[in-house]
Nucleic acid binder design. Sequence first.
DNA 1: TCGAATTTATTCATGAGTAAAGTATTTTCA
DNA 2: TGAAAATACTTTACTCATGAATAAATTCGA
Lengths: 161, 161
Amino acid sequence: MSTPATASPPTDARAEEHEALRVWLRLLTCTNLVEAQLRTRLRTSFESTLPRFDLMAQLDRHPEGLKMSELSRLLMVTGGNVTGLTDKLAEEGLVERRDDPRDRRSFTVMLTPEGKRQFGAMAHEHEQWVVGLFAGLDHAEKRQMLKLLDRLKVHLSTISD
Amino acid sequence: MSTPATASPPTDARAEEHEALRVWLRLLTCTNLVEAQLRTRLRTSFESTLPRFDLMAQLDRHPEGLKMSELSRLLMVTGGNVTGLTDKLAEEGLVERRDDPRDRRSFTVMLTPEGKRQFGAMAHEHEQWVVGLFAGLDHAEKRQMLKLLDRLKVHLSTISD
DNA sequence: TCGAATTTATTCATGAGTAAAGTATTTTCA
DNA sequence: TGAAAATACTTTACTCATGAATAAATTCGA
């Protein structure tokens, strides 16, 4: 009610704060809803999970294979995590650890033929799911959203160092 | 380059798919970056975590207390998860389980005075952090983002049932 | 070339999430 | 009334993530 006598901010700082918070909560809600859908569908359709899908996606994109450290960096998760995921995928015969002749500390991980086949099927479905989940936005809106998210991402990158 | 001779879709379906996927990946990246920042700051500044903060935020918003099932619904996590979080917060004297005289199966969970005090301090800082993290968008852009996310959320709700 | 520092991957402890099964208490209704 | 269904929460077993500690191989500098 009482406008402070101090001249400084042109906009109501409290309202601004509230707005940032509202955007953040919506962002979080939408992400969680989409993720939940993808997780559920991946599980019911393929008996798989998002982390496994993401790991296989990276291997699919790099047919020459990747080192554990590279997977860790690309997936933005810790090495221990990659070890566990890779162990299970290897048990199931979907990926393969192949010795690196140049460096006995490391090896390259790659999809097996069966892994390739299975990932191909999942990726195709996955893309259709995402299209459906974002069908609430038309072409222009998706472009707008992309632009705004890009700006946000750039700003966030300046913060994270 | 080559426009298909088929008359039907006004836009290239393959490009559309790619666009939905791009929006989704940006959305995910931004959410993860913001979450990582908030997690880190909550831990270093308050020795706490996001799930704990979220649970306490719901209790702060509902001073009359909430049932476990209500917390589960509001936080969009399973009951077992809420049990674990509540157990720890109760051990630390930040929340309290109070018997419901009307239904001995359930009880209401509420913040203790110490919990209120501690949450108040965290919430204040948290809001400043969010404002800073979203400072890459100006007022109009935040409003635009909010509008787009609302549309998306509505669409997603029709899917989840 | 030897030893120190770095890199690569694994293991372990911990925290947070899920699904499914279990327990206890109410509610419903034939 | 009392057996079946529904509800509220916990427990258990599992997945996935982190960070710290470890082990092994490589690299680099003196």
